[in-house]
């Protein structure tokens, strides 16, 4: 399979890329790792006139901790997240999530920014980006704009980025003390995409009550969503198996789950409830055994 013809541009800076974005007209695509875009080009699902490759922009490859946030440049590959000592020290949970994406070859090329802008409904990162309450920094010629995770995923393959903007970095707040985190995924046996993926992040008090919980779900709806109804039933309570099971019944609220060629809507709903329950049980098991994520610095 061969893509249709296009012109290729490789700017060396964000400014140069923004300039190209505005001067080349509407028929432009940004190329990050290319592991969603190149297959789409080959299938001619998209036939842009111009491709702007972001690989030459060093500013998009930051991996650092600043002001209690893990800052990941949009061009950080899944393998870099999986193997980075900086990420491992600040938020090892995210290394695990990255290591579950696709396969090693794809992880060597695919990027966090590409995944978040593409907003594939079965991508892995979106569940965690929601549960971690991350911020996306979008730059345009008019300056920069910060979009919160809860506003980012807007629908099927639709993220809250404007036409002439570039996602430059993802800022992930480091976690408060006594916080445990789990990403649990049912992998599609062929594609390795998430049939359902649940990110559960729970902060517990000294007596193991839930002080704060955020649950992100990917795979089953048109885009990743928070499981707000489940979260509400957990805060303030001791999260034993009975409480978790009862709350997980609300996992599909607001998700608009449709069946597809592999699974009926009912099957997906059942899987969704089951994976929310299991992810919460595993997170509480981690919390009870003291396996917490590293803590942000005291302000």
């Amino acid at each position: 399979m061969f893509p249709a013809s296009f012109d290729y541009h490789k700017p060396g800076s964000i400014e140069e890329a923004l300039e190209l974005l505005t001067t080349l007209g509407a028929d432009v695509k940004l190329l990050a790792g290319g592991h969603s875009l190149v297959p789409a080009l080959k299938l001619r699902l998209t036939q842009p006139k111009h491709l702007i490759d972001l690989a030459g922009i060093a500013a998009l490859k930051t991996v650092a901790v600043r002001e209690n946030r893990l800052v990941l440049g949009a061009m950080t590959t899944h393998w870099q997240v999986e193997s980075s000592p900086v990420v491992k020290a600040a938020l090892p949970y995210l290394c695990e999530v990255a290591g579950l994406i696709a396969d090693p070859q794809v992880r060597n090329r695919g990027t966090i920014g590409g995944s978040l802008v593409n907003a594939d409904p079965a991508a892995d990162y979106p569940a965690s980006i929601l549960a971690l309450d991350a911020e996306m920094v979008c730059v345009g010629r008019g300056g920069r704009r910060i979009v919160h995770a809860r506003d980012w995923f807007q629908g099927l393959l639709t993220a809250a980025i404007e036409e002439h903007e570039i996602l430059s970095e993802i800022r992930i707040p480091l976690l408060p003390p006594r916080t445990a985190a789990t990403y649990l995924k049912l992998r599609h046996p062929a594609s390795r995409f998430a049939v359902v993926g649940v990110a559960a992040i729970v902060t517990v008090t000294q007596d193991q009550r839930c002080a704060e919980v955020r649950i992100g779900i990917t795979g089953v709806g048109s885009c990743a969503k928070r499981a707000g109804s489940v979260e509400q039933q957990l805060v303030g309570h001791r999260l034993d198996a009975t409480r978790i099971e009862a709350a997980s019944a609300a996992a599909c609220d607001g998700l608009e789950i449709d069946g597809d060629m592999h699974f009926s809507a009912e099957d997906k709903e059942q899987l969704c409830r089951t994976y929310v329950r299991r992810a919460l049980l595993r997170t509480m098991h981690l919390a009870e055994s003291g396996a917490f994520q590293p803590t942000r610095n005291a302000p």
Partner: peptide, 25 residues
């Protein structure tokens, strides 16, 4: 289609699927 890995080569020390990379990249 980036699934089977028969096209895997090493690019700057990393295994990649060469059917999913443009030569210009």
């Amino acid at each position: 289609t980036s699934q089977c890995g028969a096209c895997t080569v090493s690019m700057n020390g990393l295994a990649v699927k060469s059917c999913t990379i443009l030569a210009v990249q």
